[in-house]
């Protein structure tokens, strides 16, 4: 038993080394750095006290970036959850040719983030855009703040769709068939079976997907960078994109460290809530 444990730890060691090197040490460095003035060359110029935090919260753009992030979350989360659920429900039973639909829903996993972001940019670019041609609309998709955040949410859904779909689909297919058959014998229709048997069974996985989506929404930055670059008029600047601008583009490492610290706390809270939720689900059967 003891030997088994040693082997397990040994196998875990590379991941643990990587986690310490690339997650924990930088996190500690960020927390310390948030109370220092650090030049972009990495030179410590002195203590900053709370100056980095004060300057951060006195910047209207940072406050706005919090608003944009939560607006993105408010659009992305329901859209993502509903679409994933629909796709998984429609394809949950193994039937002839269902594999075609499965492949289609899994396509997003085969496309890289950068490529699909660039494709979205071309589809929605300008009034004479492909999107307007297809939908017969005249919307300034990436030119108006309201539309741009919606397109960003659509991109977010596309990026998460493949992995979320496969997680939920496997959860649906793992449901004990005898439960469904028993319900069917008792006269439950397909809708009743879905709502009273299947959905409660996949609920734990659905909460994992929702928490992952919340985490992705709060951490979103690369799609913003490629699709909108924070525009139009800084209306799609999210917290992490603001962090990128401050830390890497503007040379304000102290401010960057403050944001990183706050985001680590936020991520910790989300993960703790998720763990508590899962524990609660397990305890309640």
């Amino acid at each position: 038993m003891k030997r088994q444990n040693t082997k397990a730890y040994l196998l875990l060691l590379p991941s643990m080394i990587l986690a310490v090197l690339f997650s924990f040490l930088p996190l500690i460095q960020s927390i310390i750095g948030s109370f220092l003035n650090v030049s972009q060359q990495g030179k410590v110029l002195g203590a900053a006290g709370l100056d980095n935090y004060i300057s951060l919260f006195s910047d209207k753009a940072f406050i706005n970036s919090i608003g944009h992030t939560f607006l993105f979350l408010a659009i992305f989360l329901p859209l993502n959850t509903v679409l994933i659920l629909l796709a998984a429900i429609l394809t949950r039973r193994k039937r002839r040719h269902i594999a075609i639909a499965e492949y289609v829903f899994l396509i997003p996993m085969a496309v890289s983030l950068s490529s699909i972001s660039l494709i979205f940019r071309e589809i929605f670019r300008g009034r004479v855009s492909i999107a307007n041609r297809i939908l017969s609309t005249d919307l300034p998709w990436l030119e108006s703040p309201g539309c741009a955040i919606f397109v960003l949410a659509l991109l977010g859904v596309f990026l998460d769709f493949g992995i979320d779909y496969i997680l939920l689909l496997s959860s649906f297919r793992k449901i004990d068939r005898s439960l469904i058959e028993a319900a069917s014998i008792d006269g439950a229709g397909s809708l009743r079976t879905l709502f009273y048997i299947e959905l409660p069974e996949v609920k734990p996985m659905l909460s994992v997907i929702i928490f992952l989506a919340i985490k992705d929404a709060i951490m979103i930055s690369a799609p913003v960078m490629i699709l909108t670059a924070g525009g139009p008029f800084r209306s799609t600047e999210t917290i992490m994109y603001y962090y990128y601008l401050e830390a890497f583009r503007s040379g304000n490492r102290g401010t960057g460290s403050s944001i990183a610290t706050l985001m680590a706390i936020l991520a910790g809270l989300i993960m703790a809530t998720m763990a508590a939720r899962r524990r609660h689900d397990r305890e309640n059967g």
């Binding site: 030049s39 110029l45 002195g46 900053a48 980095n52 006195s58 040379g251 490492r253 401010t255």
Partner: peptide, 14 residues
């Protein structure tokens, strides 16, 4: 001015 001050505070020795 805020951006200039912030940059100066974080990138130049006092």
């Amino acid at each position: 001015q805020l951006q200039l001050d912030d940059y100066a505070r974080q990138n130049t020795s006092k």
